[in-house]
């Protein structure tokens, strides 16, 4: 018995954790601190000089920098809002339809809707740019065929539509993700629960609203936070369709493209890694704040059910 008193060294914990910790530290944590360090310096001549938070003061205090910054943040927010009000409800609705046993060919629809998710941003960007092209695109022709040509606008080129159009393209591409996650959690709801509901007279739509929806709320929470992180990191789609200047007139400029232009430079403008890092840190803080609000404000209050 006395040998049992000494706590056993649980080596397996260390062994299992090491690969992930090493890779994550090398690829994520180390660069994160590298960026933070870079954002506290400025380049004078060929030398890096420590200036504390001056880069952040410029970013938020200087009229030009802060205009660009708030414009980008506003665009990011709008991008996120579109996803939250279009992508996620639609994804849930599609998942609910797919999980109904009355639907035929459901595995075909499931695959077809999920496929764009695995396409590259570049392909999606260029394909949609062509579809919406006022010159060669099929969008104006299709609208013409149903007599709605007057509705067509060069959406990607108009300040008032461009960002929303891009957000909807992104919704088209990624709607498969919420659909799959919700679909999986809908399938995990035991039939007994639904049948018990039926005995109590809850069927059809009522069963969805009163039984299924509360049970998939945790999944919806996860999807929302994934959408939030993904949208505030957005860059690829905007860069491939609108270029680094995120035209027209910076109407589609998000933090990602603002960061890219600043950090790497663009055409005649030379890159400024220090200011770029400051923007990257602000992006990190915005996302961190959003995730914290979710984790501490929403996640902990959510009710979970075990079957």
């Amino acid at each position: 018995m006395s040998t049992q008193d000494r706590p056993k060294r649980r080596w397996h914990i260390v062994i299992f954790l090491t690969p992930a910790v090493l890779v994550y530290t090398a690829l994520m944590i180390f660069p994160l601190f590298g960026t933070l360090r870079l954002s506290l310096f400025t380049t004078v001549g060929q030398e890096q000089i420590f200036i504390g938070l001056d880069n952040f003061r410029t970013l938020l205090g200087d009229e030009r920098w802060s205009n660009s910054f708030w414009n980008a943040l506003k665009n990011n927010t709008w991008f996120f809002v579109i996803h939250m009000i279009v992508q996620n409800p639609l994804g849930i609705a599609i998942a609910a339809m797919l999980s109904s046993s009355a639907l035929r060919f459901s595995s075909f629809y499931r695959t077809a809707i999920f496929i764009p998710t695995i396409l590259s941003f570049v392909i999606v960007g260029f394909a949609w740019k062509l579809i919406l092209s006022p010159l060669w695109g099929i969008a104006p022709d299709m609208l013409d065929a149903v007599g709605l040509k007057f509705l067509f606008k060069p959406w990607l080129g108009k300040e008032e539509y461009a960002l929303t159009t891009l957000a909807l393209i992104s919704v088209w591409q990624f709607i498969g993700i919420p659909m799959m996650l919700i679909y999986a959690s809908l399938l995990s709801i035991p039939d007994e629960v639904l049948e018990a509901g039926e005995c109590d007279g809850i069927t059809g739509m009522a069963a969805f609203w009163k039984i299924k929806l509360p049970l998939i709320l945790p999944s919806i929470g996860i999807i929302s936070i994934l959408t939030f992180v993904g949208n505030f990191n957005a860059f690829d789609l905007i860069y491939t369709t609108q270029g680094a200047l995120a035209g027209p007139n910076y109407a589609t400029d998000v933090l990602g493209s603002f960061l890219y232009r600043t950090f790497f430079g663009f055409q005649m403008q030379l890159g400024d890694p220090n200011m770029g890092s400051a923007i990257a840190m602000m992006m990190f803080l915005v996302i961190l704040l959003g995730v914290c609000i979710y984790l501490f404000g929403i996640q902990t209050r959510m009710r979970r059910y075990q079957f």
């Binding site: 740019k129 919406l132 092209s133 006022p134 010159l135 060669w136 104006p140 067509f152 606008k153 060069p154 959406w155 990607l156 080129g157 108009k158 027209p248």
Partner: peptide, 12 residues
């Protein structure tokens, strides 16, 4: 310029 020149790219 052409219809929809706002979305007309350089290669277009």
């Amino acid at each position: 310029m052409g219809d929809g020149f706002e979305a007309q790219s350089y290669p277009d």
